[in-house]
Design a protein around this nucleic acid. Structure first.
Lengths: 348, 348
DNA sequence: CTTTAGCACTCGTCAATATCGAGTGCCAAA
DNA sequence: TTTGGCACTCGATATTGACGAGTGCTAAAG
């Protein structure tokens, strides 16, 4: 079965691609045949390499910026690299220790997310991002209504993880303090332990179902709860750190690119959508350059991993950096951080 | 009294400085004697102008980037310009209308601040910033305690402007729901209409004073309130918009500068301190270049104005842009925005 | 005393030009 | 299939010269 050579032609080409990408990621300069010959470790002359390179170019995996430069990986080149060639380098002991330490203290989920974001950016020297998902996955614990002036009512929603959300609503009718209290009590009893998503569904259903049969108080309670939950603008959000790290990369050092990128960070919408997509697809994901389909990220890669609390999807975190990044180091860091964040959130 | 000439030597020099600064702000290129001769409108030859320029240079008001370039204003030059030379250009009708319209809708103070920030950045094409001050000036309206699991109690603090702040505290003793309710009632009655700052002072004093004479409930109420108010980390904060506008200015287009600047936006501390300073000094303030004493702002100017609600200082807002900015247009915009924001907040 | 013209001089900008070296593609020989 | 050789391409870098804007100074004019 084995031929004379240890490597089939195709395997050899793959190997060269790997070496080329690694080298390019290191120095950021087009890799020529001579360099590659040395780096590969194989005993082949530059001329041979040139033939292989030519093949790789035909396959669309590498390209040369101009006639007489070396080759650089294309998007597909990177893709193949991360999919099947890269040798992952697990974080060193020191890094792991620092990570653990960082997560040890905090309890508050928001603070934890912030920590995670900062860690990601710190270790990778790129931008870290942690998505904290909106209401869909939040567990209900308690609701209270406080009368304000006029008809206005302050509603306070406490979730299981200790977060507090509040919103002022203004129903048409006036409710007395004791009516409000009764309503709150009813709701607290009735929906204990449900998720907001679930609660919403049940609310709609039950309002429909029992429209006339139920008592006044309950009807009102349901109505107000629905107002709160529905109008609840607890949208998904993310926390970024280290955006300015991106300014140090030559690839992004052009103002127009940089500006689009930073604008996309404040706009949030599209980026959230991307992250949300990564939430569905389980496991790590890597978007390379234009793959994301989001123009401001054209020269960037986005590496994401969902994080779980009690085997339940809780959110996504990741790293944004230039396409030319140290995937072998960064991917494991994202992976580990996701696991640690999940664990830290569990300890609640 | 009048001499032969309409202008004294010094007045003439000032006038030339004004024209020079205006011209430099327009084109961003060093202004030479010939240009200045034309621009000034006075019928003087370039040679004469050169003499005046030489004087201005001796006074440290202008400088030339190299031997054979025109002159550019120094920091002191700008200073003199904004202090006593600039002719302010009030916002046009269109702008005023747009401003008014923007503020008409919203009621929520946070949203208003955000609007203001965006307006500032939009009209000036620079970065807008609105400082929302911390607890010191916030008026108390209502406090509530909600029992959570264990000893933990969720405290909700509603302020007069409708903002809601919450915090979970964990007293040593356990309190029943009705105890908490009583405590809240007491506090609400007793401190109605005080500012948080004031409330804090009174709390400390009254706890001291009446340590043994007062009843149990009151003592507990005071204690808990103090915990909330004191540990309240409602620090000053600011809301920025249009940071990326700054990327378009050549003066800031160097990565190291830009990075320092943007880092200072996320770090917030020092910038808050600056803004806080402007709160004290009443009236508009202009920090030009290094004047702020904050290195990241070295090549920027900061124009601030406090805004007032009911003749009461409420916060500061302003604009950050390159030293070379259209002061004549920007200063009035900041001024007007401050007034409008104050008015909009009042309507509550 | 002030203003102005004239002139030599300084420098940055820009375009043209030459040089260097890395790297390629291809061909013919091993 | 691999390799050495060779002509060729092209970016990067430095050199040069022309140009022009602007200055400072001096001496003459008002």
């Amino acid at each position: 079965m084995a031929r004379k050579k240890e490597l089939s032609n195709n395997e050899r080409a793959q190997y060269f691609l790997k070496v080329l990408v690694e080298r390019y990621i290191r120095d950021g300069e087009p890799v020529g045949s001579r360099t590659l010959a040395k780096d590969s470790g194989l005993d082949l002359s530059p001329a041979t390499i040139r033939n292989v390179m030519s093949d790789l170019e035909d396959m669309g995996l590498v390209e040369s910026p101009h006639t007489s430069a070396g080759r650089v990986p294309t998007i597909s080149g990177y893709r193949m690299f991360v999919d099947s060639l890269v040798t992952l380098k697990p974080p060193g002991k020191g890094e792991m220790a620092a990570l653990q330490r960082q997560f040890a203290g905090e309890g508050d989920p928001k603070a934890l997310a912030e920590s995670a974001s900062q860690l990601l950016s710190g270790f990778t020297h790129m931008a870290g991002v942690v998505m904290v998902p909106g209401r869909s996955h939040i567990m209900f614990r308690q609701i209270e209504f406080l009368p304000l002036s006029g008809n206005r009512v302050l509603t306070i929603l406490v979730t299981k993880d200790g977060e507090v959300h509040n919103r002022i609503i203004e129903p048409k009718k006036h409710y007395t303090a004791s009516e409000l209290e009764q309503a709150a009590n009813l709701l607290n009893q009735y929906y204990a332990g449900a998720s907001l998503e679930e609660m919403h569904k049940r609310l709609v259903k039950e309002m429909e179902e029992a429209r006339d049969s139920m008592n006044q108080i309950m009807a009102r309670a349901l109505e107000m709860a629905e107002t709160v939950i529905d109008s609840s603008d607890e949208q998904d959000d993310f926390i970024m750190a280290g955006q300015t790290n991106l300014m140090d990369f030559d690839e992004l050092a052009q103002m127009d690119r940089l500006r689009k990128l930073f604008d996309s960070f404040t706009e949030k919408q599209r980026l959230l959508h991307l992250l949300d997509g990564s939430l569905q697809a389980q496991g790590m994901q890597v978007f390379i350059g234009e793959e994301s389909g989001y123009q401001p990220l054209d020269h960037c890669s986005l590496i994401t991993s969902p994080y779980e609390v009690d085997d339940q999807l809780a959110g996504v975190l990741g790293v944004i950096g230039p396409t030319r990044m140290a995937y072998d180091r960064v991917i494991p860091i994202v992976d580990v951080t996701a696991k640690l964040l999940g664990a830290a959130l569990k300890q609640q």
